[in-house]
Design a protein around this nucleic acid. Structure first.
Lengths: 229, 229
DNA sequence: ATAAAAACATGATATTTATCAGTTCATGGG
DNA sequence: CCCATGAACTGATAAATATCATGTTTTTAT
């Protein structure tokens, strides 16, 4: 059942597509596939990573623990994304924890395959570089958002982000269901504040809920809120 | 007076050190040196950059304008750092503005020299990649700091950061003098709030001031404050 | 199926931070 | 040198957000 990287469609979404047939074979021979249950960690802040994780299915939160004990979620990684690259490239222990927020299937690729290719295949390196440039740009945006927008605006933005990146289920709820705590950790606020704002949005008819699930009802108003009206 | 990149010491601090003699020659022949007065822009958010800027002297703030009209400073770049890489690599317009916060001397390197080398010299690409990995890690830290620390803690941290990265002048004041507004834009707060906190720190004997200049008096207490006591 | 634990929710309150309004200070151009 | 202008500063107040307390619902494990 272990499929070959050469045939993996996921690869189209990440830097691995810049690898040669040869290189992909090596990767494929050395990789191992793992199943991670929701709530389980892929790795923890401070770990030395021996390789990278290529996400085949499911979603992982990348977070960092702050001094006051709260987690800040820095990124949500899904199908096609490669985790742990930064640590492997910089040869440092990782600065983020990765925990599954839904059941996941990932391929673990030992770092040797990666570093070997990085040193020889400029196309691959450039492709990785492009991805990282993109991540950095996104990180800049997050910084500006967190520091200049109100919590309400950030919650609204988070919902729009979740829909744009993970879509909706057949009933129109956000396909990725996060706990209230995770939502507050994405937004960077206290859990109670996030809950309050969710209630408020519901009252105002901007969203609807069913248990943990959240559905967007009035996209326009949410967008206006993010923009600041 | 225009010196050659091959002999430039600055190069030791950035990815250009991974370039071959040949490549450096090309860069050196195509580069132009510019003087930027304090307050003048190197480039503005949204500009399409035709090259990168290698900082020989002085400091530039990299900032992004938010919807409400406030600037958020994302990074302070000094001697040895290369600006605009991300934009050139991703072939997108830049997402940040760069403005001199002190008089600067920079070398402008047309993008062709860079992209050409990126495609051929894996060592160079890898070196750039390592730098970007580092920047990304720093950006993650900024996100966590902004969202989990109080304004007071962030101001304290900013002063320590300024000393660690830019040093002190002969009188023991921070060598890089920022306006109160710039400080508030680094920290991500209202200018009045930053000023109030500076006054408070002064009263408590943590810092001393002379005009715009700020000197650290009690490093230990500042560190404790950042850590959260 | 049920008890225990965890997540969700809401009110009351405290704290932090922003905003508005105004005064003082410093500095560079005429 | 002086005045005009913008930066620095301060107070009063409003708004946003966090914290604490507590009850309710949902999940989980046995």
């Amino acid at each position: 059942m272990e499929s070959r990287c050469e045939n993996c469609i996921i690869r189209q979404f990440n830097s691995l597509r810049a690898m040669s047939k040869e290189e992909l074979k090596t990767v494929s021979d050395s990789k191992t596939t793992k199943t991670i249950k929701k709530g389980q960690p892929l790795f923890e802040e401070g770990d030395k990573l021996n390789g990278v994780y290529c996400v085949r299915n499911g979603v992982s939160k990348l977070s960092k623990l702050s001094a006051n004990g709260k987690d800040q979620i820095v990124k949500l990684a899904t199908k096609g994304e490669v985790l742990g690259q930064r640590s492997v490239i910089a040869e440092e222990s990782t600065n983020l924890s990765a925990v599954a927020v839904s059941d996941m299937e990932v391929c673990f690729i030992p770092k040797e395959s990666i570093t070997h290719t990085l040193q020889r295949n400029p196309n691959f390196t450039l492709e990785v570089l492009r991805h990282m440039a993109h991540d950095l740009k996104e990180a800049d945006d997050v910084i500006v958002n967190i520091s200049q927008k109100t919590v309400k605006q950030r919650v609204a933005e988070a919902f729009l982000y979740l829909r744009n990146n993970f879509g909706e289920d057949k009933d129109g709820f956000l396909a990725l269901t996060l706990s209230r705590e995770d939502i507050s950790n994405v937004v960077g606020t206290a859990t109670e504040s996030a809950i309050r704002i969710i209630s408020e949005f519901k009252k105002k008819g901007l969203i609807r809920t069913s248990g943990k699930k959240i559905g967007i009802k009035d996209e326009r108003k949410l967008i206006e809120m993010v923009e600041g009206f």
